Amino acid sequence: MKQIKGVNLGNWLVLEKWMNPVMFSGTECEDETWLCRTLPHDIKVDRYTQHRATYITERDFAYIASKGLNTIRIPVPYFIFGDVEPFVGCVEYLDKAFNWAEKYHLQILIDLHTVPGSQNGFDNGGICGVCKWSQNPEAVEFVLTLLERLAQRYGTREGLWGIEILNEPISEEVWNLVIDRYPAVDKEEAEGSGPVPSEFLRNFYIEAYQRMRKYLPVDKVIVFHDGFRLHEWKDFMRQEEFVNIVLDTHLYLMIAEVMGCEKNLDAYIHYIDNNFAKDVTEMQAYFPVIVGEWCLFNNTEGLKEMNEEERKRLYMKIANAQLQAWEKGQGWFYWSYKLLLDTVGDSASEGWDSWDMGKSIEQGWLPDRY
Rank of each mutant, 00 (worst) to 15 (best):
G82D: 01
Y209D: 03
I56Y: 06
E309K: 12
Q107A: 06
F81V: 09
R213P: 04
T249S: 14
R213K: 05
I74D: 01
E241A: 13
L150G: 03
L340A: 13
G117F: 02
D95Y: 01
C90N: 12
I43D: 12
E189D: 12
Y55F: 15
Y182A: 08
Y48A: 05
L35W: 02
E310I: 03
P197H: 05
G351L: 09
F287L: 09
G89L: 01
Y271C: 09
E305Y: 03
P367Q: 07
G126T: 03
P77C: 02
G68R: 08
D83I: 12
F276C: 07
T156K: 15
L39Q: 00
P217M: 10
H225G: 09
W233Q: 05
K220S: 07
P21F: 10
H250N: 15
D95N: 15
E58N: 04
G302Y: 01
R59Y: 00
L303R: 13
E164C: 09
I80F: 03
N11C: 07
L166K: 00
I4L: 14
A208F: 02
K304M: 12
Q119D: 04
L340N: 14
A277F: 02
E92I: 09
R238H: 10
L39V: 05
E282R: 07
L150D: 05
P40R: 07
F142L: 11
D273K: 14
G82V: 08
K328I: 04
W12T: 10
K304H: 11
D346Y: 10
L251D: 02
N176K: 12
E102F: 05
D266N: 14
K5N: 13
I110H: 06
K103Y: 00
